[in-house]
Amino acid sequence: MVTFSRTMLVGGEFLEETTLRLHGILEDRIYAMEIQLDVRLPDGVITAIQGRMKRYTTPVCPRAVDVLQKAVGMSLREEGWISKMNRDIGRQGCQHFAEILIECGRCLASASLAQAMEEKLKAQPTASLETIARSWVEEHPEVQGSCLARPKGESTHAH
């Protein structure tokens, strides 16, 4: 029998080309809460945020909802952003809100890539997903060096 289970759900919608709205929902055996944030592109700055606690452990926990506003103005692309979220939103507010916020931040690049793939495939239905992804990495130096599939120094060249 499963004694503990956690689900994290993140959705990303582009309100316009330079604004990504992220919805993050956390539900586990102990906690249930959600966050919605608007992120400016390409600098990744949070321009608006709201949150809701649905299930929590102490009567003091809901105080963390107001602490979320400290995230406005923070960038999800600056160096050390995760530590900053853990410190300013987690420690001063709620660690689980911080977990949702960090997961949303991790989806920033993936949302951008997914949108690029969809747009490219609409224009060229037979295009290779791998080629689209490779071009996207070349055009986004901020993700280069982040993992084994995205080496640093991929240069942009005509396809």
């Binding site: 289970s5 689900t7 759900l9 959705g11 919608e13 309100l15 997914a114």
Partner: peptide, 16 residues
């Protein structure tokens, strides 16, 4: 507006 990206994660613990 429709989502451009969606992520689901689930983690479960089961004592053996």
């Amino acid at each position: 507006m429709t989502l451009a990206f969606q992520r689901n994660k689930i983690v479960e613990v089961e004592p053996l």
